[in-house]
């Protein structure tokens, strides 16, 4: 099914766009923490969103922090930056330079995490918008937290019927901790078709 949705070429192009977006995000983060942020190569996967695929995409985590950002325009859907288990907590503590004794995030820390996710997601979408020369708008980010089940229900009910799920997994490492994050984008069929069209249009320029 995966192949049917996005060709290898589409995949490659999207991956590179996310790579560039993450590179910018990492640059912004490294300026904030005055430390180098090490990035992995993003892994992209597109599947039809179903309860199973959503659950799978969220992995085996017990507890998640996810930052939701709705986007609209030429491309529309919901983007989520999901942090495994306590990766989000670790990330915030690292950024704020606090020791992580408690596993719960306070309000201030939740805002911090929201901002970090916002930086990453914005960088990715700006890159897509810039390179593909399309118009995308995003809303203010929202922090969600809970078990994968709770989050999944939220995501699924927000996405409408038969949406596609595009997941980009990546890890970024701060000096001492490896933080795993995943960008998941839920898109309606027509939105995905629009994306494919944009990708093909872009590819044509270079072939």
């Amino acid at each position: 099914m995966n192949q049917a949705l996005l060709s290898d070429e589409h995949n490659d192009t999207l991956c590179e766009l996310f790579n560039i977006g993450m590179g910018r995000a990492a640059n912004s983060l490294s300026e904030m923490v005055h430390e180098e942020v090490i990035l992995s190569v993003p892994q992209l996967n597109t599947v039809k969103a179903s309860p199973t695929s959503l659950a799978l995409s969220l992995g085996q985590s017990r507890y998640l922090h996810a930052i939701e950002q709705c986007f609209s325009g030429d491309l529309s859907g919901q983007a989520y930056l999901v942090f495994d288990d306590f990766s989000g907590v670790d990330l915030v503590r690292q950024l704020l330079g606090e020791s992580a004794m408690c596993q719960d995030l306070g309000e201030l820390e939740q805002e911090t995490l929201t901002e970090v996710a916002n930086i990453i997601l914005n960088a990715c979408f700006c890159c897509i918008a810039e390179v593909l020369e399309c118009d995308i708008e995003s809303d203010v980010p929202l922090l969600l937290k809970g078990t994968p089940n709770e989050l999944f229900h939220l995501q699924f009910s927000n996405a409408g019927l038969a949406p596609y799920l595009l997941t980009v997994s990546m890890t970024f490492q701060l000096p001492s901790k490896s933080i795993k994050g995943q960008v998941s984008i839920l898109m309606a069929t027509e939105s995905l078709q629009k994306l494919i069209k944009e990708l093909e249009r872009f590819s044509l320029i270079y072939t």
């Binding site: 912004s28 300026e31 904030m32 950002q69 325009g73 950024l95 704020l96 201030l108 820390e109 805002e111 911090t112 929201t114 901002e115 970090v116 916002n118 930086i119 914005n122 979408f125 700006c126 918008a129 810039e130 118009d135 995308i136 708008e137 995003s138 809303d139 203010v140 980010p141």
Partner: peptide, 26 residues
């Protein structure tokens, strides 16, 4: 203190329509 951050979010908003959050802690 960090004009780059503000510049970035203004650019993202004016050029691409991106919304951002600037937290009090960061």
């Amino acid at each position: 203190e960090q004009p780059k951050t503000l510049k970035r979010v203004i650019d993202q908003a004016c050029q691409y329509g991106m919304a951002s959050v600037l937290s009090s802690s960061l």
